[in-house]
């Protein structure tokens, strides 16, 4: 049972990071080069999950994803099932929750690359999209590694948002941190120890990898 929740957590973190890279990359690129006044507003919204208590974020997401919410309602009309207390709902919630941890490193990396390499690539007949994938992204590789690992690790450890939106359904929404909480509640300290240590070691290893890789990557933008 415990390993099921570990596997579920890994799945959730993996899918969430994949979604975040797809959504966060264009958002981070836009933030890095826009002169629009909306920029500060968008930056504030992206950063909100860092300061907001997870239960507050979870509460709003629960309302939004519920069968009568602005996201859950149309979803139910379309698919016949609600989003709250499902794996899909958890992915959507985690995407919001971990957004800043992906967008901010990417934005910083894009800003460090600057607009000049893009200009060069375009003068060499590359379209904007082509230039983005073949020049800007490889030069921002460190940003991607940071975004990937931070987004993954942050999703691994989420608790409040999951509890609000996903509840505690074994194999569907019961993730690692909730399992640990259950064990502690039932005074099953041994199992809690095993899971906590697993999470601790995994997180530590991942962060070590980020810092090592970032130091060794061939591209040094500065």
């Amino acid at each position: 049972m415990d390993w099921a929740s570990l596997w579920l957590t890994m799945q959730l973190a993996g899918v969430t990071v994949a979604v975040l890279l797809v959504v966060g990359t264009p958002l981070a690129w836009w933030l890095s080069c826009t002169k629009s006044r909306a920029r500060t507003l968008v930056e504030a919204v992206v950063a909100l999950p860092i300061v907001l208590p997870p239960t507050v974020l979870g509460f709003y997401l629960l309302v939004a994803l519920g069968p009568h919410g602005p996201i859950g309602g149309p979803w139910k009309a379309l698919t016949g099932s609600a989003l709250s207390f499902t794996f899909t709902g958890l992915v959507i919630a985690s995407t919001f929750y971990s957004l800043p941890f992906v967008v901010q490193p990417l934005q910083g990396a894009f800003e460090a690359v600057g607009t000049k390499p893009m200009e060069v690539a375009r003068s060499l007949r590359a379209s904007k999209l082509d230039a983005f994938f073949t020049v800007v992204s490889p030069m921002a590789l460190r940003g991607y590694v940071s975004a990937l690992v931070l987004g993954f690790a942050h999703t691994l450890g989420e608790f409040g948002v999951v509890l609000m939106v996903g509840g505690n359904i074994p194999g569907v929404t019961r993730v690692l941190s909730i399992t640990i909480y259950d064990h502690v509640e039932s005074l099953e300290y041994t199992q809690a120890h095993v899971l906590s240590a697993t999470l601790l070691i995994v997180s530590f290893l991942m962060l070590t990898i980020v810092y090592t890789v970032n130091r060794r990557l061939p591209v040094n933008v500065s």
Binding site: K116, V120, R122, S127, P218, V219
Partner: peptide, 20 residues
């Protein structure tokens, strides 16, 4: 006309080579 369609070559003041 966008830059890639003008078919101009540019040599910038700094070489601006792709580091990767």
């Amino acid at each position: 006309v966008s830059i890639e369609q003008r078919r101009v070559g540019i040599v910038f003041q700094e070489a601006r080579l792709f580091p990767h």
